[in-house]
């Protein structure tokens, strides 16, 4: 078995919940996850819906949008980290958002998000975060006013793939 197919097979046992109020964006995320081998994918349309589904399904990883009308991704993250009835306060949470300003990203970190992906999505961005949550999990920290992944960890660098991202951007620019 080649390294690539081994890598692909690795994700098939993961159960991933997508929390996103936009159906087309859910479809895109689902297609990307399936392409890299994820088989168990649970959809939720907002934070409240996700909480209900978390009581029904075993989930290993959440990928959530930020802005949603009923209950947003920040509120959902705080609930998972701090609510007494949360099924897993250590659940890895990848936030996907169009909010890319540094103060917004800090807000997400302060809520207890594990990793952050800026929209629009890219294959590199998604896989980089999947690798990060599997290979480089953060220790958790509990203080008087915070519980969640250690916010001090530096982002791991993937030199080769950054180059790939630049190539893809160049390709997109050429085809635009």
């Amino acid at each position: 078995m080649s390294q690539s197919s081994t890598n692909e097979a690795r994700y098939q046992r993961l159960s991933v919940m997508i929390v996103e109020d936009s159906q087309p964006m859910r479809e895109v995320l689902r297609a990307m996850l399936q392409s890299v081998g994820v088989k168990n994918i649970i959809d939720a349309r907002d934070g409240q819906h996700a909480i209900r589904k978390l009581s029904e399904y075993q989930v290993d990883l959440i990928i959530t949008d930020w802005v949603m009308e009923e209950m947003d991704g920040i509120e959902l993250t705080r609930w998972i980290r701090n609510d007494p009835v949360s099924p897993d306060e250590f659940l890895p949470i990848i936030m996907v958002s169009g909010h890319t300003e540094s103060n917004r990203i800090e807000m997400a970190r302060d809520a207890g998000v594990t990793e952050f992906i800026a929209k629009p999505l890219t294959g590199v961005g998604l896989i980089q975060r999947l690798v990060a949550v599997v290979e480089y999990p953060r220790p958790f920290v509990r203080t008087d006013d915070y519980f969640g992944p250690d916010r001090r960890r530096k982002v791991e660098s993937f030199t080769g793939e950054e180059r790939r991202a630049a190539e893809l951007r160049d390709r997109d620019a050429r085809s635009a």
């Binding site: 890598n7 692909e8 690795r10 999505l121 590199v124 998604l126 896989i127 999990p137 220790p139």
Partner: peptide, 30 residues
Amino acid sequence: VIHQPNKLKDLVGGPARMDERLIAKAEAAL
């Protein structure tokens, strides 16, 4: 500071790596 057992690593059963083919598949699916 709490060091949790790495459940995801146990589930994937080995190292998860960045690789060009996987990235290309995700880009194609996108």
